[in-house]
Design a protein around this nucleic acid. Structure first.
Lengths: 143, 143
DNA sequence: GCTTGACTTCGAGCCGGCTCTAACCTTTAA
DNA sequence: TTAAAGGTTAGAGCCGGCTCGAAGTCAAGC
């Protein structure tokens, strides 16, 4: 059993963040020692690592909470749990990931649009700046 | 001369937002009427429209403030101001836009990375879900 | 017995970009 | 004359995701 700062070291999340995640419901409350200190198991650590994986996908804490509503499925599978029984959870997960991917795609389109606009504007200022430089040099080749 | 709500209608920014922009320094203080009410000119409206253009590029208020430190150059040009005199402003603007574009490109790369990761994870869950469905159907073709 | 260090809690603060409330003031029309 | 429709200000609240401060508790070592 691990303390919060040991879990912090092994997951890269600060104790602050771990407690915060607990508060907002993305992590469930761990057992406590007599003194009241949190006491985490190995499987809780791997759950958090799994969670970190989803954060890397840019998912919000809300999405992640929803994703994990049935616990850490990958672990259950590794423990040899019946695949058929997990089917609804798996379906929900592919659904959430599909939706997330669609959001990312939308974001990318949006980003490409504003990049195109930025390039346009940049080209305009660039052309003006060049014109200004020429005028300064007195060359004034055109006209 | 226009009131704040007239400017709001013509620019799509709420009076709240206009006052907020003034407070954080992206808009400069307009003239006041006797009563103390803000009184905007047409050129202030076109400045704000220009500002909206930059917002559409995803620029932060801080970047926009910096961009407009020398006023609305496009307008000065239209008013026939000497292009050579504006050269430093124009150079600064192309510089800011170039930097902004680089940031957008970085963001896009990042986004592409997490999209690839998401697709991977999705493929995995998808495969598992299919496997679970097969097991449920009793077919169990393999093994 | 006392200090030290790690834990606990609650609540506040931070970021950026608004958005709104409250209390007040001004102009205009009935 | 007074009420409604605008305007003004300072300051608070909101979002998500932390991050921290203060004050308290607890176990271990000197």
């Amino acid at each position: 059993m691990l303390t919060i700062s040991q879990v912090s070291e092994r997951t890269g999340l600060s104790p602050y963040t771990l407690r915060y995640y607990e508060k907002v419901g993305v992590l469930k409350e761990p057992k406590r020692k007599e003194g009241g200190a949190r006491s985490y198991s190995e499987s809780e650590v791997s759950f958090i690592q799994c969670l970190n994986g989803l954060k890397r996908l840019g998912m919000s804490l809300e999405e992640i909470t929803e994703f994990f509503r049935d616990g850490c499925v990958m672990e259950k599978i590794q423990q040899g749990e019946d695949l058929a029984k997990l089917s609804p959870s798996l379906n929900k997960r592919t659904e959430i990931l599909t939706k997330h991917l669609a959001e990312l795609e939308a974001k990318k389109k949006e980003l490409e649009t504003i990049m195109a606009l930025t390039r346009e504007k940049l080209a305009m200022y660039d052309a003006l700046a060049k014109g200004a430089a020429e005028e300064k040099n007195g060359s004034g080749a055109r006209e």
